[in-house]
Amino acid sequence: MKTDDLVTMLATGTGPVQPNQVLRRYSVAVGLGALGAAALMLVLIGPRPDLAAAFLLPMFWVKIVFVACLAAVSLLVALRLSRPGMRLSWLPGALAAPVVAMWVLAAFVLIRAEPALRAQLFFGDTWNSCPFLIATLSAPAFVAVFWAMRGLAPTRLRLSGAASGLLSGAVGTLMYSVHCPEMDAPFIGFWYLLGMLIPTVVGALLGPRLLRW
């Protein structure tokens, strides 16, 4: 087939393209991922029993805002990576900001604490299950976000896979926060982040294989 014939073939009978498909795919993916994570949380581990009381604590909301910021920025990163030729510009900095803020808060908390209490602030009571449970709750969003990206056109596959993984990790963590009793900054700044990094690394490993087009 000659190139001119290909051009004619591609242009013939081509109808209008629905606008905003990129945003629409991600809305569906994040919505389904969040629903899936909520369902898994309710079935596997349940919300924390003192949830109503926790709503009144500032640190509960600091935790939610931290995770929500990571979810929002990684969504923006994924949106840009899904379109060829888009630059990330200020987004990597915006991704680092909530992490740095949480670490500053954690350092402040640790410095002010009695030395004997520092280990408890860092390990909490659930350090050994937290990252694993976060990764588990991220699984539905991971599948959904990869589906969204596969229908688009990422050109940097490893990075795109990592961004998809981080986005799904943040969505899963948001639901995990409803279950998790921990509220100390050192715990959140390390174990939550570790949990979100599990799907991120898996995404970076699978990206080049799953996202090719």
């Binding site: 393209v17 498909q21 899904s82 379109r83 060829p84 030729g85 056109a153 050109t155």
Partner: peptide
């Protein structure tokens, strides 16, 4: 096949070249 990923606010050149380079 990927024409739905073009954002009308984006320079066309960078979109086309990113696809061709890919």
């Amino acid at each position: 096949n990927q024409r739905h990923t073009y954002d009308p606010g984006q320079p066309l050149t960078s979109w086309v070249h990113a696809i061709a380079k890919y």
